[in-house]
C-alpha cells in the first residue's frame, strides 16, 4: 500500500519477544500452562547460550533447569516496563553460566592459548546459527562493524565468560584498555542494533 514506508527489520523477531513477555506475566500469576509454553519458547535458546559458555551439555542442562525454576519463582519481580522477558531470562541464564564456569575454574583450562582457540570456535558457532536467522544476522552484521580488538574483547567477556581482569591478563594488555574496548564495542553494537540509549 505504501511501498516507501520504512521496513521494520525486526518484524519477525517481535512476536517471540512479545509472546515471551506476555507469558511471563501470566507465569507471575501462577499459571503453569503459561510456564509450559514459555519453556517451549525459551528453553532451547537458553540452553544454546549456556552451552556456548559452558561447553558441557549435562552441566548446561542443569543450569537451564535451575534458571527456569528461578524464573518460575521470581516471575513477579519482572517488570515488563523495564525490559523484555527474553532479555531478562537470557541475562539470568548467562549469569548462571558464567558463575558456573568461574567456580569450575580449577578444573577448566583457562590459560591464554585455550582461551584464544575457544574464541575461534565461538565465532564459527555464532555464524552457523541460522535457526534464529533474523536476530542472528542482525547481531552478526553488527559484530562485523566492531574493530577486531573490540570484537575479541566482547567475545571473550560475553561468550567466553572471562572477567575484564582475565581478559587483560590473557591479552597481556592494561585493564583500562580492556574496559575501553568493551565499552566502545558495546556502544557500537547498540548503535548498529538500533537499541535506544
Amino acid at each position: 500500500m505504501h511501498p516507501d514506508l520504512p521496513v521494520a527489520t525486526d518484524v519477525d523477531a517481535a512476536p517471540v519477544v512479545d509472546q515471551a513477555t506476555a507469558l511471563l506475566v501470566r507465569v507471575a500469576d501462577g499459571d503453569q500452562r503459561a510456564f509450559s509454553e514459555l519453556y517451549d519458547l525459551m528453553a532451547s535458546r537458553m540452553l544454546g547460550l549456556v552451552r556456548h559458555v559452558l561447553k558441557d551439555h549435562a552441566q548446561s542442562e542443569e543450569v537451564v533447569q535451575e534458571v527456569l525454576l528461578e524464573v518460575w519463582q521470581t516471575a513477579s519481580r519482572f517488570d515488563p516496563n523495564k525490559g523484555k522477558a527474553v532479555t531478562w531470562m537470557l541475562t539470568m541464564a548467562h549469569r548462571r553460566a558464567i558463575d558456573r564456569v568461574r567456580s569450575a575454574q580449577a578444573s577448566r583450562d583457562r590459560d591464554t592459548k585455550i582461551g584464544i582457540r575457544d574464541l575461534g570456535r565461538e565465532v564459527d558457532t555464532v555464524s552457523e546459527s541460522a535457526e534464529i536467522s533474523i536476530e542472528h544476522k542482525r547481531v552478526e552484521k553488527a559484530m562485523a562493524r566492531l574493530s577486531d580488538l573490540q570484537r575479541q574483547a566482547v567475545e571473550l567477556a560475553y561468550y567466553g565468560g572471562y572477567t575484564q581482569s582475565e581478559v587483560a591478563e590473557m591479552l597481556n594488555i592494561p585493564l583500562g584498555t580492556v574496559k575501553t574496548r568493551l565499552r566502545d564495542g558495546l556502544i557500537r553494537l547498540r548503535t548498529e542494533l538500533g537499541v535506544a540509549s
Binding site: Q32, F35, S36, Y39, A43, S44, R45, L47, G48, L49, R51, H52, H57, S60, E61, V64, Q65, L68, L69, G83, K84, V86, T87, L90, T91, A93, H94, T125, V126, E128, S129, E131, I132, E135, H136, R138, V139, E140, V154, Y158, Y159, L186, L189, R190, L193, V195, A196, S197
Partner: peptide
C-alpha cells in the same frame, strides 16, 4: 539499555534442544 544489547548477543547463539526429561522434571 546495554543489557538489551548483551541480551541480543545471547539470543544470537544457536538454539540447542534440551533432552526430553528436562521439561518433565522441571514441570
Amino acid at each position: 539499555s546495554l543489557r538489551e544489547v548483551s541480551g541480543m548477543l545471547g539470543a544470537a547463539t544457536a538454539p540447542v534442544a534440551p533432552s526430553a526429561g528436562l521439561k518433565q522434571s522441571l514441570m
